[in-house]
Design a protein around this nucleic acid. Structure first.
Lengths: 135, 135
DNA sequence: CAGGATCCTCTATGATACTG
DNA sequence: CAGTATCATAGAGGATCCTG
C-alpha cells in the first residue's frame, strides 16, 4: 500500500494522479457543473438549448466543456445530419452518477451555507469596524 | 413553487446566489481542497507545515486560501505571539463537515474514475486512428 | 444550427523583496 | 516565523468572424 492516495483512508489530493484530485479538476471547472446540472434537469438538450439555458457562456467555452465531458464519458453527443444540422447532448449513466454526487454537495451547501454567511459577516465586521475611516 | 434553487429538487447552479453555486466556487479553487485535506489528515498545523505539506503552493496563494477559509468559518487561526511568532490552523466543525462531503466526491472518483479513463482512451483512439499522419 | 479558428483581454498565480 | 506588498506572466476565457 505505501502512501498512495488510492487507499480508501488516505485521501489527500496532493498526488496529481489521485483520482480525487482529477475529479476536483473536473468539477471545479466553472461550466462543467452547469452543463451537468442542465442536462440532469432537462434530459436531452440541443446545443442551442444549452447555450440559452446557461446564459453567459460563450460558444468556445460551451463547446470546449461539452467535448471534455463527452471525452470523459459523462455525456453522449448525437449528431443528426438533417438540413439544419442537429446535435443532442444527454447524460450517460456515468454522468447521472456524477449528478447524484453533485447533489451531495448541494445538500451540504443547503445545510451549512448559512453558517458560512454568518462566519463571513462576523469576520468582515471585525476587520471593518463601524468607526473605520474610509479611504 | 417558483424556480428558486433553494428547493431541494431543483438544483441548478445557474443562479449565482444559489448555495450550491457558491459552494462550487469554493471547492473548485485549486488550493482549498488541498488545505482542507491536509488539515483533515493532520489536524492542527502551523503555517510552515502547511506550506511544506502542500508542495508547490506559493506564500501568496497559501495565505490567500487560508484567509478565505477562515473567513468562511471552515478553519480557525490561532496566533501565539511568542519570540518567533507561531500560527496554527485547524479545521472547525464546519470545516470537518465539508471534509466529509469531499470524501463523498472521493468515493465517486474511486468508483468511477476507471470508467472515465476508459472513455477517454476510446475517445482519443477514435479521433487519433493508428494510420493518422502526424504533422 | 453547430461549431472551428483567431485575436485579445483580463485575472489568477508565481516570483521576488521587505517587515513585525 | 508568518506574513504583506509589488511586479511580471501564462493561460483561461470572451468577442468576433467564418463554414459545412
Amino acid at each position: 500500500m505505501s502512501t498512495t492516495t488510492t487507499d480508501t483512508n488516505t485521501f489527500d489530493a496532493f498526488d496529481a494522479s489521485c483520482p480525487s484530485r482529477r475529479l476536483l479538476d473536473t468539477i471545479g471547472d466553472k461550466w462543467v457543473s452547469l452543463v451537468i446540472a442542465a442536462l440532469g434537469t432537462h434530459g436531452r438538450m440541443r446545443y442551442t438549448e444549452l447555450s440559452t439555458k446557461i446564459s453567459g457562456v460563450s460558444q468556445k467555452m460551451l463547446t470546449q466543456t461539452l467535448r471534455k465531458l463527452e471525452r470523459d464519458g459523462l455525456l453522449s453527443r448525437t449528431v443528426t445530419p438533417s438540413v439544419p444540422i442537429r446535435t443532442d447532448y444527454e447524460l450517460t449513466p456515468l454522468g447521472h452518477s456524477l449528478l447524484e454526487t453533485i447533489c451531495h454537495l448541494k445538500a451540504w451547501a443547503e445545510a451549512h451555507m448559512r453558517d458560512v454567511d454568518t462566519a463571513r459577516e462576523t469576520y468582515d465586521q471585525q476587520r471593518n469596524p463601524p468607526g473605520a475611516v474610509p479611504l
